[in-house]
Design a protein around this nucleic acid. Structure first.
Lengths: 216, 216
DNA sequence: CGTCGTGCTGACAAAATTGTCAACACCTCG
DNA sequence: CGAGGTGTTGACAATTTTGTCAGCACGACG
């Protein structure tokens, strides 16, 4: 049996370490995820972006499903880190809420991570359990709020949690459907308007957080 | 040439009017849309749900793309109607905000229309231009708010618009990512918790809407 | 410099999916 | 009851996409 004929490599073949290859592949796949969603992650297309052939992806990840899973997990982990850093970075004072919202918004925007989160929610993918990150943040913030607050009518922990939830809901929705909603509102689409809304939201949140201390 | 052999129809073949067939097909396709997204709308699967063969879908819609478009347009139109009805139905008084939020939330939940909206936003589908529905609502509500309000520091129209936007963002996000977010918050997932958040949100919104009149 | 591990590839296979087409079946109308 | 219109279908074609596999190529290491 003659051996099967092969084309000689026209150019010097690129050879990466396994980790480098996986990272390059995940980068390309993540772009597809953010643009159209998980269905857009096609082996051929991703391989083309990376500059390799599609069996290479299967070599590194085993199957398309495993690749998608890896992309999603990495994106969500990065988002989590970014959001936590945003919160910690703005924890110097509660009066810096506008900057905090901007940072979280930026974290949701980078690499389409907010959109990736939405795709996950819609696809029914259960990301790695979040270990109740929001609750942890609330447990961190609530004592500070109580300290600031007069002792009459102290706000409940649930109120702090819901306030956080409201902020996350709003920023998440803005990152996913911001342009569509702004258009429906007859507002000029664009980052300026979105930031304007965020500043307004910061005012509402602060007013709520400080409500009651004025009454005491 | 002998004519091609055909299987005789085992059972009496169902025959609908064109409109009936289209509606049945759209119903089945919408279920797929809400469950997994536009990519889940597969001719074979939808046809199976309807109980017809897949060329029937192509006969009625011409192509898969046209079918998806029809599903999306119908879903979004229905959502729009539901939301407007919810707002009008609760327009008897501003103090009925909790009921209003519940109604809009229900509109977003029925038939997964909120999820469909999210899929559209993520897929980059531009639905039929909304004719700035949110703005129209704001223009309806703002005068009422001004009338209720003392004449000192009258709220701006933009403030009313942003308040509406905040409500829509929150309810939209809750309909899409509610369970995921609640879990991250360490709250028990379920409609009770979601309603609880909505009531809390209503309180925040009302407080904001009435703010300033207390100062005057 | 040989050989060994592994990143990488072309060719092929298999399955799924969209779309085409001629023919069939049922209803309506003259 | 015959003819036309149209909803419906099985069979087929073409394309796309995932997955398999044997073998090549490049770097490391003795």
């Amino acid at each position: 049996m003659a051996t099967i004929r092969r084309k000689p490599a026209a150019t010097r073949r690129l050879r990466r370490t396994s980790d480098e290859a996986r990272a390059a592949i995940l980068d390309a796949a993540e772009r597809s995820l953010a643009e159209i969603g998980p269905a857009a992650i096609r082996l051929q297309e991703v391989a083309e972006q990376v500059g390799v052939s599609h069996p290479t992806l299967l070599h590194h990840f085993g199957s398309r499903e495993a690749l998608v899973k890896a992309v999603v997990e990495r994106a969500l982990a990065a988002l989590q880190v970014d959001v936590i850093q945003a919160i910690q970075g703005a924890s110097d004072g509660e009066d810096n809420v506008p900057a905090l919202l901007d940072r979280i918004s930026a974290a949701l925007a980078t690499n389409g991570h907010g959109r990736a989160l939405a795709w996950c929610a819609l696809s029914g993918m259960t990301p790695a359990p979040d270990a109740q990150r929001l609750r942890q943040v609330a447990e961190l913030v609530h004592p500070l709020r109580l300290k600031r607050h007069g002792h009459r009518h102290p706000p409940s922990f649930e109120d702090t949690l819901f306030t956080l939830l409201l902020a996350m809901f709003s920023l998440f929705a803005q990152s996913v459907a911001g342009p569509m909603m702004l258009e429906a509102a007859g507002l000029p689409a664009g980052p300026e308007t979105e930031q304007r809304f965020r500043r307004w939201l910061a005012g509402v949140l602060v007013a709520h957080l400080e409500k009651g201390s004025e009454r005491g």
